[in-house]
């Protein structure tokens, strides 16, 4: 569900770029990057038992 949610945020970024909403597209892009980084950290540390 988290992965699908991030893809939805990426889709929203794409839609805001298409609608020429400069500021919103940059905010959504930054949010997507943050979510992808957090999900990556979760999967990278999962086996270490860090409960990230």
């Amino acid at each position: 569900m988290v992965a699908a949610f991030i893809f939805i945020v990426i889709l929203a970024t794409f839609v805001s770029i298409r609608r020429d909403q400069r500021r919103r597209s940059l905010i959504l892009f930054a949010s997507s990057m943050l979510f992808v980084t957090l999900l990556f950290l979760h999967h990278a540390t999962d086996t270490l038992g860090l409960s990230f």
């Binding site: 992965a3 991030i6 990426i10 970024t13 794409f14 597209s25 892009f29 997507s32 992808v36 999967h43």
Partner: peptide
């Protein structure tokens, strides 16, 4: 796998940059 999906996400985000320039050029 989860890492494969994360790579797809990063790849699609990397394509947002040129898409942004293309769209802004029309603005």
């Amino acid at each position: 796998c989860p890492l494969c999906l994360l790579q797809r996400m990063a790849m699609l985000l990397a394509a947002m940059g040129p898409m942004f320039i293309i769209r802004r050029a029309m603005s």
